[in-house]
Design a protein around this nucleic acid. Structure first.
Lengths: 353, 353
DNA sequence: CGCCCCATTGATCCGCTTCAATAGCTGTGG
DNA sequence: CCACAGCTATTGAAGCGGATCAATGGGGCG
């Protein structure tokens, strides 16, 4: 019988979930009421899977995961986050730390169960692969084994070629043959396309710790857009051929990469929907939020970007963007000082229109 | 020294390219002036890489590739297409047949060379993996080895669960937890999102032989959009867990899948650009082209779709779409009969605005 | 044969772009 | 240290493209 460790501070949720898992789904369940206890029980019990609340007093879920990742005994145990937050940001943070899944409260029985099952299935496969890799396979042993995207990032940092750029420097241009995949160490990058009339539309913004430039790994296909820095930026690049070699020996990471792409795809589809039917005012708000999240994701909510850049992301004219920001200013949602825009009321911005 | 087989009917291109490869890049080059000779030389010489023109009298490039894929001796030789056509359609066709890369004429020395190098590098890795897999690795031997996306499609056809739908039936809805990945056997599917006001935007159209529903493989994440049939459709679905198992043992296919996603991403970014700045007339033309390519990609250019569906893809109002089509009708670019739209002048449609 | 949905056309209204002019900021050289 | 050049931001006015509302026509299916 599979053993599940459930870490959750809310007594009611903890007990009802444990009951569900134990009597309906027939797992063996261990519970912990806080992060410390959870961490200790994980070490002593070595469960098959860990389900852990994110928001807990003192040691939160992120810390538990981080601790467990450091220990070779526990680092391969599938880790599922339980959270009330549905923010993309939070989900990403958890995933980046190496979580395997993310369930938001309230969840249905079916959701929980399917997450657990798919995790267990995957971990079984990975265990098998790991044992194969550990025994035979000498020829590729010199290549590091990567557990998740974080490890891939470390690889980039250690073995990639560093490049430095000032503001508004082009890293690659649409149509260039793609040779490198990049990771941003510091700064931010926009990628944009031009239409026939020469108008610019920014399709993505990448920040510190983001990968970019991954068009096609197998084929020698031109970049579909131009990448340009929007602040002084340091990146590391890894040649695609090298990356392919690496990925061929690290299956889990490839799947994570597929996920990253799928995530990008979702984001762009959202942008597409906005672009098609939203009012300018809404586009402006969405753009400000995007920048707040991407560029200044850890500092406070001051955005320092040219109006033109903002307009290009929103896909509207410069003047219209400015008018729209003025309106937000009048409504008391933002504060403007020169080119700096400070978000005063984040929630109001999210619900514009 | 690596041996390259170059199949190209145009004497001038053949000779100059051969010269380039031989004297500048120092490969050993064999040439063939048509498909038959090329095929025979491939079998006898077993080159390390094959570069082949697509458009040739009698046996064209596609046929050569198809023939070579059938022979176990030649099926693993990297195959690069050389073509004057830059159409996405053509590129896709080649890739689907299992080509490894696609270079468009005229090409630069650097383009050609980097394609060859990256192919050779990849094939070296794959050879190594193949030998490892063939020797050890009994535990997963019962799982089929897949060479490319085509093989993956075969797997779907053989082991997937079949579903049948009439027109306008929902396959999955935005927010559903994703369990299956689908392959279309017959028919066509649109995937769309709704905005707050309930307006619909179609973000993708999938046709026969397309995969869809691949949101995230590792995570138990909701579908980001709704999939609905636009004609009677038969699909096969494979559970994600199963797919992950499969993919873990088939590295090459995963990379192909990454490419497919990257390709989708490119397509959507293009749509985004159109959406932002194109006139309605241009959006209409682009939409018609999209349908011509997607829905009726092998029959002639008659499109039979509701006006509303067209409008949803274009992201414009129904009436505006109709007016725009009327204009195309007046210009003699299309012909309308009831709900059928026939494209008379494909090129004119491509260059609208 | 008639109903109903879908396609089409007309008229009106408004949001957004564009063009144009001014104000404000930054940096550079005398 | 100031003045001027050359950006970037802001505001105003005009025009138009596309959405919306409304009414009519047409074709397929029960």
């Amino acid at each position: 019988m599979k053993k599940i460790l459930l870490i959750e501070d809310d007594q009611i949720i903890r007990e009802s979930t444990a009951e569900l898992l134990e009597f309906v789904e027939h797992y063996s369940v261990i519970t912990a009421e806080n992060g410390e206890v959870g961490y200790r029980k994980a070490l002593t019990e070595l469960p098959d899977i860990i389900i852990c609340d994110v928001m807990m007093p003192k040691t939160d879920g992120y810390e538990v995961l981080e601790q467990l990742s450091l220990n070779p005994k526990t680092k391969f145990i599938p880790f599922i986050f339980l959270s009330a937050k549905t923010e993309r940001k939070d989900v990403r943070k958890g995933m980046n730390l190496g979580a395997d899944d993310y369930i938001t409260k309230p969840f249905t029985e079916e959701e929980l169960n399917s997450a657990i099952e798919s995790r267990l299935a995957k971990s079984a496969i990975l265990n098998e692969l790991r044992s194969i890799e550990e025994s035979g396979n000498k020829s590729t042993n010199n290549i590091k084994q990567l557990k998740n995207l974080n490890d891939l990032k470390d690889f980039f940092k250690n073995y990639g070629i560093p490049f430095s750029y000032e503001t508004n420097k082009v890293i690659y241009e649409e149509g260039n043959r793609s040779k490198y995949v990049f990771l941003i160490l510091e700064g931010a990058v926009k990628s944009y396309k031009l239409n026939e009339q020469g108008k610019t539309l920014t399709t993505s913004i990448y920040k510190e710790d983001d990968f970019f430039g991954y068009t096609s790994f197998s084929n020698n296909i031109p970049y579909p857009d131009t990448a340009e820095t929007i602040k002084p930026t340091k990146v590391v690049g890894v040649k695609k051929e090298k990356l392919i070699t690496l990925l061929n020996n690290n299956h889990k990471v490839v799947l994570d990469l597929v996920d990253l792409l799928a995530d990008n795809l979702k984001e762009i589809k959202d942008q597409l929907l906005d672009m098609a039917y939203s009012s300018v005012h809404k586009k402006t708000s969405a753009t400000l939020l995007k920048f707040a999240e991407k560029i200044n994701y850890k500092s406070d909510d001051i955005i320092k970007v040219s109006r033109q850049d903002l307009a290009n992301v929103a896909g509207i004219s410069l003047e219209t963007l400015i008018r729209s920001i003025s309106k937000l200013k009048k409504e008391g949602i933002v504060e403007v000082d020169g080119r700096n825009i400070k978000i005063l009321d984040l929630n109001a911005l999210k619900t514009v229109e």
